[in-house]
């Protein structure tokens, strides 16, 4: 899955918000390869949202501030590029869907980005149909956006980004306002999309219970990169607990008992315990 050249490469990256003397992120070195499914987590204020916005250039171009070091996305230097150019490669979905949606109808919203980039009508039609299909929201096509539920809105926001066919999809705490059931459904949908199309997914979350089973790489960020590797390996340590990040209860429980291999969710825990118990 990993190609030779990373699609995102950050070298010694440090960023200061305007009028800030302390950096939001410091000396970040990170390489993300195509088709990875990466989860970034960390405490509040640790720079997760900052990093998301660097991926598509909103930082520094929309926010200003000082960006030191190098950030290369799909071969383009973030500092000398534009949000528009980077947004064609990196699609960013924000936490609150209500504030991302501009148009009155779902169809208009999905067409929005493509219209801004001067795509012709027939291509827009193809993209709309395609994205409604893969997200299973064909029935929402002509709905007025202010009548949609939170979960539906988030899917529409995702649809309007996917319609641009970015190579990388970045989701900044998108399940924060969802109830757990809807969050689970949404994450399953993301996993399905990841399998179906050739896309790299970067998921920023701090509710890990549902997310850990999907990512093959976990990055701990608290202004600097604390850890970067396989979720199971990182959970074996107590880094997450020390940083005050919520660890799935079954994982915590298993750690206390010394159960191996360390389960990340209930299904795995049941399997592991079934083998472990008789031995005890």
């Amino acid at each position: 899955m990993a190609n030779e050249k990373p699609i995102i490469k950050l070298e010694n990256l440090t960023y200061f918000y305007p009028n800030s003397k302390t950096p939001a992120i410091e000396n970040i070195n990170l390489a993300i390869y195509e088709r990875e499914f990466v989860t970034i987590t960390g405490p509040s204020g640790g720079g997760k949202s900052t990093l998301c916005r660097i991926f598509n250039g909103i930082i520094p171009h929309f926010y200003g501030g000082k960006l030191e070091g190098r950030a290369i996305v799909n071969g383009i230097d973030v500092k000398s590029s534009s949000v528009s150019e980077l947004s064609r490669v990196v699609g960013l979905v924000f936490q609150n869907p209500v504030n991302q949606i501009v148009n009155l109808t779902v169809e208009e919203e999905i067409a929005f980005g493509l219209e801004n980039l001067m795509f012709p009508s027939h291509v827009i039609e193809e993209r709309i149909s395609w994205v409604l299909e893969i997200l299973n929201i064909k029935h929402l096509r002509n709905r007025l956006t202010y009548t949609l539920s939170g979960g539906e809105l988030q899917k529409v926001a995702l649809a309007s980004i996917l319609a641009l066919k970015p190579k990388v999809l970045v989701l900044d705490e998108v399940t924060a306002n969802m109830d757990p059931y809807s969050a689970r459904e949404f994450l399953k949908l993301l996993r399905d999309i990841w399998h179906e199309i050739e896309i790299t997914i970067i998921l920023v979350e701090h509710r890990l219970s549902e997310v850990l089973q999907y990512a093959n790489r976990l990055i701990l960020l608290n202004k600097i990169i604390i850890a970067d590797g396989l979720p199971r390996e990182i959970l074996k340590s107590d880094l997450l607990e020390k940083m005050g990040i919520e660890v799935p209860p079954v994982t915590l429980f298993s750690k206390k008992l010394g159960v191996k291999p360390l389960p990340l969710n209930v299904k795995e825990a049941i399997r592991v315990f079934r083998e472990w118990l008789p031995r005890k």
Partner: peptide, 15 residues
């Protein structure tokens, strides 16, 4: 009720 049970009870029941 579209709720996800807490993990520990789900585990205990699974076992």
């Amino acid at each position: 009720s579209k709720l996800i049970p807490p993990q520990i009870p789900a585990l205990i029941i699974g076992l």
